[in-house]
């Protein structure tokens, strides 16, 4: 791999008057023990848009994503410094209720991880725990979220079957349905299609494009075609540094940074 300068960067400025920012980070650094995984990452994510995070394995894109809803809190050796601004609050600061925050910043993981409960319970479990008891409302929630995730037609007669009996692609869409049942502001997706076959992948992609109407989506992907197909903005990560942030169109046609150019044209990664 060629050595690229970490100073050769480009960040498309987003005018706050024209673009509403849903969440942003300011000089975010992530450490695992003595190793630094993310260096001064500053990015802004526009509301109701899809932003893709791309980069080679080990570039830190997943680590960055997991920091946004503080999933790294659960790793004892991890330390995150810098600001994560959401609704005018630094949610990386103290005094923030992380459990409450994660209701609004949802996440879908790389490997489908449905609970070993029924399809119905997978979706209603968390809302019930958060205090929603009305059966009619829960039923309605199951139907709308499964429809949004393009799963309703396939499972509407088996809602009380175990979710583990579903195929991988269906499981992942169930996980998306489960996440949007919380009505989050922001949906973080960590390579949601990497464990799926091509057909399931394209269904998940269609789902995401539909979801953009109501959710701000940030997606980590290994698959550049996928980023090009579905995202509005793209950020390119390299060895823990964000080297370029631009509209997806620009990134894939006229990248400003040499490293981005090499990566998207397939020279490394």
């Amino acid at each position: 791999m060629q050595n690229y300068s970490f100073d050769d960067t480009y960040f498309l400025p987003l005018d706050p008057k024209k673009h509403e920012i849903a969440i942003s980070t300011d000089d975010l650094n992530v450490y695992y023990g003595d190793n630094q995984a993310i260096f001064d990452a500053s990015l802004q994510f526009e509301r109701f848009k899809i932003t893709a995070l791309i980069g080679a394995s080990g570039s830190g894109k997943s680590t960055y994503l997991r920091s946004l809803n503080r999933m790294n809190d659960n790793i004892a050796s991890a330390k995150v410094t810098g600001k994560i601004m959401y609704r005018d609050l630094d949610i990386n600061g103290s005094g923030i209720d992380t459990y409450e925050m994660r209701k609004h910043i949802g996440m879908v993981f790389q490997r489908p991880n449905p609970f070993s409960k029924s399809i119905y319970d997978n979706i209603t479990f968390a809302p019930k725990r958060h205090g929603l008891k009305d059966k009619a409302k829960l039923d309605e929630m199951v139907e709308t979220t499964l429809k949004e995730a393009a799963l309703w037609d396939q499972v509407k007669d088996d809602l009380h079957q175990s979710a583990l009996a579903l195929s991988g692609g269906q499981q992942q869409r169930l996980c998306i349905a489960r996440a949007i049942a919380m009505k989050p502001d922001i949906l973080l997706l960590d390579e949601p299609a990497s464990a799926l076959d091509p057909i399931s992948t394209s269904t998940v992609e269609e789902t995401l494009i539909r979801l953009r109407e109501h959710y701000t989506i940030i997606i980590v992907t290994h698959n550049m075609q996928q980023a090009a197909r579905i995202s509005d903005y793209t950020a390119f990560f390299h060895l823990g540094h964000v080297l370029e942030f631009n509209t997806t169109k620009e990134i894939f046609t006229t990248p400003k940074v040499k490293a981005t150019d090499d990566y998207v044209s397939g020279h490394f990664g």
Binding site: R87, I91, D97, Y99, E100
Partner: peptide
């Protein structure tokens, strides 16, 4: 609605 969410982040939730 937005203020509600912001305020809820600063309170101790049931989960917590």
């Amino acid at each position: 609605a937005e203020d509600k969410i912001r305020a809820s982040l600063l309170k101790e939730s049931k989960a917590s």
